[in-house]
Each structure stands twice: as C-alpha cells, then as structure tokens.
C-alpha cells in the first residue's frame, strides 16, 4: 500500500502495517471510499492481491468439493470467501457510482482523473459520452445556439458553471491513527486544534483530505 508521505514510521507502526491483512486493508479502503465525498486513489495493488486471494480460495473450495471434505468446513470457507467478494465488489461499485455522478468534473480535473484505474477511465469516457448525448438530445439541441453547452450555462459564462461537483466541505466522521497536535482545520488562519488518536471526530472532509490520502486518518 502506498504511503505517500516520506515520514519515517515508528517501529510499532511498521509492525502493525506488516501484520495488517489484505482483507483489513480492503475493508479500510472500502470504508474510506464509501464515506468520502470525492473519489479516492485506486489501490490497484490491493485489488490485484485481493483478486488473487479470492481466486486461490475459489480453487481451494473446488478441491474440497471434489475430495469430499465435510460440508461444514466447505460452507465455512465459502462464507469467508463470500465476505471478501462482497468487499471487493462493493469497493469497485462505490467508485463507479461516484464516477457516474461526477463524470464531467472528474474528466476535467487532472488530480481526480489520475485516481482512476485505466479501466475506470474507459468507463468514465463511456459515461461522459452517454450523458452528454442524452442531455443534448433531450434539452440542449432545442435551446438557442448560445445556450447549448452542457458544461456552461451560456457562451457568456467565464467558466464551466454547470458541472456538478462533490461537496468537499461535507462533514465526515473520522478517526486518526495518531495524535495530531496543533492541527490546522483550514487555511483561514483560525486556531489550530488537537486531534486525539483513536477518537471519533466530525470534521469537514476538506480539512483532512491529505491525511485520508496518506492513510493517517480513516473515515467511518
């Protein structure tokens, strides 16, 4: 898992990182993605490893069935497998739904576009074309020429003012792995606050965006 920031980790952090299973990482990625208003970075390594684990387990269960392993054991392995599959599917699905919802914004924002996997980018292209065509056929082609853009209200607009964006100042419930002293909530020069480790906080997503990206804060 990419850690982004170059800070050294304390010894016990390193150990806990090493002992975190892929399923736990997948669960965290899933939770963050569900709770964050914008799309997060695609964790391609994690997804790949998870798929390998799932495939290996599917083969194992097949073997069990062939070799007449007792039904109880088989059904328990199947349940574990189902749980992991759900996490993976839901993770990918949540991302696709965010792409669908904010496709124009994502396409024109390099930072967001780069968070998509290659296949998600292809999906996004398709979504954008589908939606643009739909808007043009339903509405835009029937409006006067100066008002036909799907991105701008009219030719007089200075920028793309018709593109829905996620609300980054939406509040999220989060938990920090580590104590964060003198944390600046925004760049408006207000008093910084202290964030205790392992406590829950309700904060605007914007304030903690970089910490979520680097894995220091989890969303709940």
């Amino acid at each position: 898992m990419d850690s982004g920031g170059g800070e050294g980790y304390a010894v016990d952090d390193y150990e806990s990182l090493m002992s975190t299973t892929d399923v736990e990482l997948l669960k965290t990625a899933w939770r963050n993605e569900k709770a964050a208003p914008e799309i997060l970075k695609f964790d391609s390594n994690l997804v790949q490893r998870s798929r390998q684990l799932i495939q290996f387990m599917e083969e194992t269960v097949d073997e069990f069935n062939k070799n007449g392993v007792d039904p109880l054991t088989v059904s328990l392995y199947q349940m574990d497998l189902d749980r992991t599959m759900f996490l993976l599917r839901s993770y990918l699905r949540t991302r696709l739904q965010k792409i669908e919802k904010y496709v124009f914004h994502i396409r024109k924002t390099a930072e967001l576009w780069n968070r998509l996997s290659l296949k998600e980018q292809q999906f996004a292209e398709g979504c954008a074309i589908d939606l643009k065509d739909h808007l043009e056929q339903s509405v835009l082609s029937k409006l006067p020429e100066q008002y036909q853009s799907h991105l701008r209200q009219s030719a007089a607009s200075e920028d793309d003012d018709m593109v829905p964006e996620p609300q980054l100042d939406a509040y999220v419930v989060c938990r920090s792995k580590r104590y964060l002293g003198a944390f600046q909530l925004d760049d408006g020069g207000e008093e910084p606050v202290n964030i205790e480790a392992d406590d829950l906080y309700a904060l605007p997503y914007k304030s903690i965006k970089p910490l979520v990206e680097s894995g220091q804060i989890d969303l709940v």
């Binding site: 925004d186 408006g188 606050v193 205790e196 829950l200 906080y201 605007p204």
Partner: peptide, 12 residues
C-alpha cells in the same frame, strides 16, 4: 472543538 470558521466536533 472549534467554532471559528470551521466547526468541528469530538465524538468521544
């Protein structure tokens, strides 16, 4: 925990 411009709550 903060109520200047950015409101923040601790949900201990």
């Amino acid at each position: 925990i903060s109520k200047e411009r950015t409101y923040a709550l601790r949900l201990k």
